[in-house]
């Protein structure tokens, strides 16, 4: 076994997840392909959303894949970083908005 949890080569093996459970794996890939097709959002816009979520999920495979995908689509580095900031802002906002719970509790217990 490789002594690292993540290996860039594993990204290419993504398709092989169907080997252990074909039906569900196939359904997932069908769904995945449809999601990223041109729709009301362009494939380019979807690629940027994917890049932002890849960061908030901190998935190295997805970051690798959607950085490459963005470059191929002519996405600029400024656009990529702005997308990551959107993800980061939602992440930090989500943490901070929970502090209203903490404040409520403090106010209740401690007057």
């Amino acid at each position: 076994m490789n002594n690292s949890y993540y290996d860039p080569k594993d990204l290419k093996k993504f398709g092989s997840i169907t080997e252990f459970q074909k039906e569900l794996g196939d359904k997932f890939f069908d769904y995945y392909t449809s999601v990223f097709e041109e729709g009301n959002l362009t494939a380019r816009e979807k690629s940027l959303i994917a890049l932002a979520v890849a960061h908030t999920e901190q998935c190295p495979y997805c970051i690798d894949a959607y950085t490459q995908d963005g470059l191929q689509r002519g996405v600029t580095r400024e656009e990529m970083m702005e997308a990551v900031h959107v993800g980061a802002a939602i992440k930090s906002g989500a943490a901070l908005v929970h502090s209203t719970m903490m404040m409520k509790k403090v106010n209740k217990l401690d007057g």
Partner: peptide, 17 residues
């Protein structure tokens, strides 16, 4: 492309350009 990657779909790029 400006680097070590392939171009994506020609008609999508044409639309964006």
């Amino acid at each position: 492309p400006s680097g070590a990657f392939m171009p994506s779909n020609q008609s999508d790029l044409e639309r964006d350009f």
